[in-house]
Structure formats: C-alpha cells, structure tokens
C-alpha cells in the first residue's frame, strides 16, 4: 500500500480502492496544516487529563503511567482545543 501514489499506473492500484493496511493514515503527516503551535509547559501541567481526550489528531501521546508527554508535531494541526481546555495555562499557542 505504502508505495501507491499519484504516479502509480492503473495496473498496480488495489482493486476497488481497497486498503489492506488498516490504519495506514498514521503515515500521512498533517503537521504542516499548523499555523499556530501549542507549546507544552510541563512545569505548569498537573496531569489532569483534560487535554488528550479532546485532541482530534491523537497528537498528545499518553504513556502507561497515564501521563501526557510532549506534542507530536508531525500530526498536530494546531487547532488549539487543548490550550482552551487546560485550566492551568500549561499549553500556550504560539
């Protein structure tokens, strides 16, 4: 699937537009959509867990200790929803 692009001849496309690698959109980077950038201020963060459930792009990784980590800028579209929900000012849009 990964080698299919807009220059692939018809003989080499999957039939009917089927995709056999479910979830391969994770290889499509949406970070370049961003016009403003969220900055994570870890010293202000209380790990309340309000930001990551609302991120439309899964761009706030959560580790097994249930703690958020820094942004995944490959995917973050810069919508700012996380900054809006943060009660502690731990996310700043720049």
């Amino acid at each position: 699937m990964s080698e299919i692009n807009s220059t692939t001849p018809w003989q080499d496309l999957t039939i009917g537009g089927n995709i056999y690698e479910a979830g391969n959109a994770k290889n499509f980077k949406t970070g370049d959509w961003r016009s403003v950038k969220p900055i994570y201020l870890s010293e202000k963060c209380k790990q309340c867990g309000l930001c990551f459930p609302v991120c439309p792009d899964d761009a706030i990784p959560v580790n097994k200790e249930q703690k958020r980590e820094d942004f995944n800028y490959d995917m973050c579209k810069g919508c700012g929803v996380c900054a809006k929900v943060c009660p502690f000012g731990a996310i700043e849009m720049q």
């Binding site: 496309l13 537009g17 089927n18 995709i19 056999y20 979830g23």
Partner: peptide, 13 residues
C-alpha cells in the same frame, strides 16, 4: 487482515 472498502477516490485515482 483488517481491510477498508469504499474510499473517497479523488482525481488522482
């Protein structure tokens, strides 16, 4: 093998 059927198939495809 999970698969997806019936995409949005734009000008390129």
């Amino acid at each position: 093998e999970p698969m997806a059927v019936g995409p949005l198939d734009l000008q390129a495809y």
